[in-house]
Design a protein around this nucleic acid. Sequence first.
DNA 1: CGATAGTTTGATATCCTTCAAAACCTGTGG
DNA 2: CCACAGGTTTTGAAGGATATCAAACTATCG
Lengths: 238, 238
Amino acid sequence: MSNPLIRKLSSFADFSTEDKAALDALCSSRRSYDKHTTLIKEGDRPESVFLLLDGWAYRYKILPDGTRQVLAFLIPGDLCDINIFILKEMDHTIGLLSDAEVASIPKQALLAAMHERPQVAQALFWATLVDEATLREWLVNIGRRDAYESVAHLLCEMWLRMDQVGLVAGNKFKLPVTQEQLGDTVGLTSVHVNRTLQKMRAAGLIAIAGKTLEILDVEGLKSAAGFDPNYLHLERRR
Amino acid sequence: MSNPLIRKLSSFADFSTEDKAALDALCSSRRSYDKHTTLIKEGDRPESVFLLLDGWAYRYKILPDGTRQVLAFLIPGDLCDINIFILKEMDHTIGLLSDAEVASIPKQALLAAMHERPQVAQALFWATLVDEATLREWLVNIGRRDAYESVAHLLCEMWLRMDQVGLVAGNKFKLPVTQEQLGDTVGLTSVHVNRTLQKMRAAGLIAIAGKTLEILDVEGLKSAAGFDPNYLHLERRR
DNA sequence: CGATAGTTTGATATCCTTCAAAACCTGTGG
DNA sequence: CCACAGGTTTTGAAGGATATCAAACTATCG
């Protein structure tokens, strides 16, 4: 099994053997972290970029009144903070939702790779643009979909993304997220998320067992969400 | 007055004289458009990137049920769609909010500039990351702030961004946006936006005359919004 | 097996929406 | 320069989606 970063970026760029070797070299330093570890805090200026090899993480902001907004879920193959080597400091926090394995890529090494290898630079740019597109869709989710649609949409998205990295089997996948965190994602209360999920189960769309989600009726869930995957830009561009 | 693209990107990168000349050359083809023109539609695959030289534009998506979500406001100096030269197709639409002057940069020329000039590539990357950070803050806005905070926050942001490109005078600036569009931005009804703006005027925070907004009490507005400009990354990174 | 985190439930409160109409602009043509 | 048309803002009354609060129940992990 190849490096998940290469695997992910390859869906866009055509890498030469040297490009791949360079990317591999970048990921040489890896280690495990415990659930709930904070990888990077708002205000930090880390000297390396984190790459999730295994497990889930999430971006979030905490407001002055203590409420939280989740800004993204990160799954294996995702870069956590390309931001940092261009922006002055982190404007949000990244924490782990599960035990995780993480590679740490030195900022300078990544910058060098980008300057020397246009394919790499372009692929990273691509990944960033997909993140941005996802953020836009989340905006639609919170702004213009009701609770039921919104939760359904989020589940569709995570299902597709997990599938893309080979982590879905039989329409089941690990979703190590509490209902409170789901609520903080779609702008709802954990109580309301709970009632919404119950309706979805009653409708036969999903089943939940522990931290594993099973999608029983894919088409039903998609249509409840009004889900159109175009924003994930999964197909290779021409 | 120099090219607004250079002006904007310079706040990050140190361009050589040749870099600047290259950027200038990119913007040679410019023309005027009427208010309400659609620059790019969802599904399009344009062959050039648009740069706003004068006027306002906005990104948005229309849902199947006809509701709309505004995803960004674009002001002079903003690139409309760097997306397109990396992604397969547009996943949203860009329209004009006012009469505008727009430069059209051929995709290939921009790609070439990026490959040949690391400073340019890095600066464009930076602009993209700031856009992304803005999107995250909008997520917070819709997800976790109430109507009053949310509208106040949006006004603070546009004030700062307009100021950054020299379009604020005496705390007044053009805001060519209807209350309906404001509502579609922060996930509210135009009716509720109206009542919210009324409260803000009653509180002495703002004044509206036609399409011009005046901020009467900057600190008051900021504190009503819980506004922290860090996400705009205006300071030059070190 | 107990402690703690997470889920579920019910009752009540509230922010925001919906609908509909009136008042107000802004710009255009006569 | 007036008058009208269409878009925009404003107002009111009533309804609905989601929040809040608090307690019970249920997993999970050391």
